[in-house]
Amino acid sequence: MEVEPIKEGWVMMKGISSIYWALVTLTLSTWQSSLLLASPPMRLENLPPVAPKEAAEKLKQADALLEQGLSAELAYRLAYEVYQKHGVVRAAWFPSWLYRKTKRPLPDPNDRLAVIGAVVEGGYGLPLSMLRRGATSIGLLFRASRALGNYEGIVKWGEMLIQAGNDSYSLIKTVEHARLALAQGIKQYPYRRSSNKNTWRPLPLKFREEDYFILVPLDQACKVLGIPFQYKVNPKTGKRTGAKIGEKGLISLMGRPFARNIRGEVDDMAYAPYEEDGVAWVPFYWLAKQAGIRGWEVRNGKIYVAPK
């Protein structure tokens, strides 16, 4: 007569266990893709050593330069300096604003098990796996070579990534295309350089630099760039949850780097927007892309943009 309750309890425990491991598997997959989000992914068992602090900072800066389209040359130089001194190394990090907003100590972003445990355990109120970014020295060298149109670099660093366990289709096809170009005697494909910067104009727009990203106030930036926008507010809490830009664009302000461009297509940001002291801060490069700006840079304390 006591069999049924025991059986029922066992089934319940089995169900809880299944849910737990499903969460672990999902978190592990998210971690694997986000760890080297800025670089082509590698298998977990093939991850290189963690870079020393100074080298990690250079990898972080190179990643930001490439994501914002600011200077592939400088990004390559920074990543190569790290590679020359430390070889193939990796670095992972959380955005600086996350440390200001969270009330609990954050796990070491380089510690896989600590991050997974924190996500499964919960209690942070923010998606740690989504906010975490990472890069490797050779991953950044590959990306910089691709941005510069350097076929030799694409093949060299791409082959190293493949040997390290990266078997993504896009990487393999990119390397194959570069090999074919080299076989035909082509070492470089056209690299579009910035137009005459004397014709660039400054924007009446304040900004802040954080983690090497240029961030701007969302409402002010949209007005300056001519992008229609409207905040989305949770009717129960009265808090802003995001913003609609154009007819179909959508930006999340819930600690997620999720976004849809003005055409409604998924176009996630490399730096998650956040709200602080009533101001929503958004990476300028993403808004500039929505406004059709071809080139931009920061000098003399102002953001300068190329003429359309």
Rank of each mutant, 00 (worst) to 15 (best):
residue 291 A to H: 03
residue 214 I to H: 02
residue 12 M to T: 10
residue 24 V to K: 01
residue 294 R to C: 04
residue 142 F to N: 08
residue 175 V to G: 01
residue 133 R to L: 12
residue 234 N to P: 03
residue 82 V to L: 11
residue 76 Y to N: 03
residue 299 R to Q: 10
residue 31 W to D: 07
residue 3 V to E: 11
residue 176 E to V: 05
residue 279 V to C: 04
residue 11 V to K: 14
residue 150 N to G: 00
residue 136 T to L: 05
residue 280 A to E: 13
residue 238 G to E: 09
residue 291 A to L: 04
residue 178 A to E: 00
residue 103 K to R: 15
residue 257 P to W: 13
residue 169 Y to S: 13
residue 61 Q to H: 15
residue 95 P to Y: 03
residue 238 G to V: 12
residue 7 K to S: 13
residue 287 L to T: 10
residue 270 A to W: 12
residue 194 S to D: 08
residue 54 E to C: 09
residue 19 I to D: 15
residue 24 V to L: 01
residue 76 Y to S: 08
residue 247 E to P: 02
residue 96 S to T: 14
residue 196 N to C: 04
residue 119 V to R: 06
residue 130 M to V: 04
residue 233 V to K: 00
residue 205 L to W: 02
residue 88 V to N: 10
residue 94 F to Y: 08
residue 174 T to E: 04
residue 7 K to P: 01
residue 198 N to W: 05
residue 207 F to W: 04
residue 173 K to M: 00
residue 200 W to Q: 05
residue 79 A to R: 04
residue 268 D to H: 13
residue 107 P to H: 09
residue 224 V to C: 02
residue 50 V to T: 14
residue 61 Q to G: 06
residue 15 G to C: 07
residue 165 G to F: 00
residue 19 I to M: 13
residue 219 D to G: 05
residue 203 L to A: 08
residue 4 E to M: 15
residue 219 D to M: 09
residue 34 S to L: 14
residue 184 Q to N: 09
residue 136 T to F: 12
residue 55 A to S: 08
residue 171 L to D: 00
residue 131 L to K: 03
residue 249 G to H: 01
residue 107 P to K: 08
residue 14 K to S: 15
residue 66 L to P: 05
residue 145 S to F: 03
residue 80 Y to P: 04
residue 32 Q to C: 05
residue 87 G to P: 08
residue 31 W to K: 06
residue 180 L to E: 07
residue 69 G to V: 15
residue 34 S to F: 02
residue 161 L to T: 00
residue 181 A to C: 01
residue 119 V to G: 01
residue 258 F to T: 15
residue 185 G to R: 04
residue 291 A to D: 00
residue 226 G to P: 08
residue 111 D to L: 01
residue 98 L to C: 11
residue 49 P to T: 09
residue 193 R to A: 10
residue 151 Y to R: 02
residue 189 Y to E: 11
residue 76 Y to L: 14
residue 284 F to M: 13
residue 295 G to F: 11
residue 97 W to S: 00
residue 192 R to C: 12
residue 272 A to T: 10
residue 73 E to Q: 11
residue 119 V to Y: 03
residue 170 S to D: 03
residue 263 R to T: 12
residue 60 K to P: 02
residue 83 Y to M: 06
residue 253 L to M: 15
residue 150 N to E: 08
residue 26 L to H: 12
residue 96 S to K: 15
residue 65 L to T: 03
residue 4 E to F: 15
residue 299 R to F: 01
residue 262 I to K: 13
residue 281 W to Y: 10
residue 188 Q to C: 08
residue 89 V to E: 00
residue 152 E to D: 12
residue 75 A to L: 05
residue 265 E to N: 00
residue 17 S to A: 13
residue 184 Q to T: 00
residue 110 N to I: 11
residue 81 E to A: 13
residue 268 D to L: 10
residue 293 I to K: 02
residue 24 V to F: 09
residue 305 V to Y: 09
residue 84 Q to C: 12
residue 140 L to Q: 11
residue 160 M to G: 04
residue 295 G to M: 06
residue 279 V to D: 02
residue 94 F to H: 05
residue 159 E to I: 00
residue 109 P to A: 14
residue 62 A to L: 07
residue 263 R to V: 14
residue 26 L to I: 11
residue 306 A to Q: 12
residue 186 I to K: 10
residue 239 K to G: 02
residue 167 D to S: 10
residue 55 A to V: 03
residue 272 A to S: 13
residue 290 Q to M: 15
residue 44 L to G: 06
residue 270 A to G: 12
residue 5 P to Q: 14
